[in-house]
């Protein structure tokens, strides 16, 4: 029972959003947040939709996260092929260098990258964020796949060599298909991690049509004249993509986190 009560506490704020997003501003001011709306009212949602370019932010988030997920997986596979199968010299140090991408706090990257992207004209361009997070996410992928490929069945590689396959062929036709389940888990995680990122996108994306979903909501929250019901509606709408994603990939997500932690 205790566990169920705890779960209820966890979803409670989201239920509150649902309860209050459909109240008119007058209704909201005069009722308790735990009351049901007096009548279904879409003022908040309408104001949010009209004043904010949410579809644009949604598209930006989808574009950036998809690009990062795909490119980071490709880079991870290439890196780990050289490290895990090729066992290139100095690979321990190479893995450590990649590991730094995971450890380093983002404020250490923020200013030099800001200047670099400014020089390259990439500020407020989704590719500034894509480039950055391809590296950060693929660092994790490299490190996971390298240890996986370090114990890759030798027989398969030998069979490929006997068939006269080049390294590139072996990677594409023998290794990647076997890794596919792991790669799809990685892709799901890279997507959601990138979707949720805050500090560096906040620094690099400054024009209103380059904002991602979290940035749009954060900006709305910072504007003083924002009506509370509009803010509630905006928050609820910003939660929806995550909920959909969660329902679609729930199994992959729980499998993925445990795969990383348990030997």
């Amino acid at each position: 029972m205790l566990a169920a009560v705890g779960a209820l506490i966890i979803v409670f704020p989201i239920l509150l959003l649902l309860l209050n997003a459909f109240k008119s501003p007058v209704d909201y001011a005069n009722s308790s947040p735990l009351d049901f709306p007096a009548a279904l009212d879409f003022t908040g949602i309408q104001t949010f939709w009209e004043t904010q370019n949410f579809p644009r932010a949604l598209w930006n988030s989808i574009f950036i996260s998809t690009m990062v997920a795909v490119i980071a997986v490709v880079v991870s596979v290439l890196n780990s092929f050289a490290i895990g199968i090729g066992r290139v010299r100095g690979r321990t140090w190479i893995v450590l260098a990649f590991l730094m991408a995971n450890l380093v706090p983002q404020e250490m990257l923020f200013d030099p990258l800001f200047q670099l992207y400014d020089d390259l004209g990439l500020l407020s361009n989704p590719w500034s964020v894509i480039l950055t997070f391809v590296v950060i996410q693929s660092a994790f992928g490299t490190y996971l796949l390298s240890s996986l490929l370090g114990t890759f069945p030798k027989e398969i590689l030998e069979a490929a060599a006997v068939d006269g396959a080049t390294r590139w062929r072996t990677l594409r036709s023998a290794i990647v298909p076997i890794l596919r389940p792991t790669l799809s888990v990685l892709m799901v995680f890279f997507f959601i991690w990138t979707w949720n990122e805050f500090l560096l996108p906040l620094a690099f994306l400054n024009t209103s049509d380059s904002l991602t979903v979290p940035l749009l909501l954060e900006q709305l929250n910072g504007e003083r004249q924002t009506d509370t019901t509009t803010l509630i509606a905006g928050t609820l709408i910003s939660v929806i993509p995550t909920i959909i994603f969660f329902l679609l990939f729930q199994r992959t997500l729980t499998r993925g986190i445990t795969a990383g932690a348990v030997k």
């Binding site: 966890i10 979707w195 949720n196 979290p214 909501l217 928050t235």
Partner: peptide, 15 residues
């Protein structure tokens, strides 16, 4: 219990 983990921190914070 896992849901808040995949919610963007900005969205959770605004909430």
């Amino acid at each position: 219990y896992y849901l808040p983990q995949i919610l963007p921190i900005a969205v959770a914070g605004v909430m």
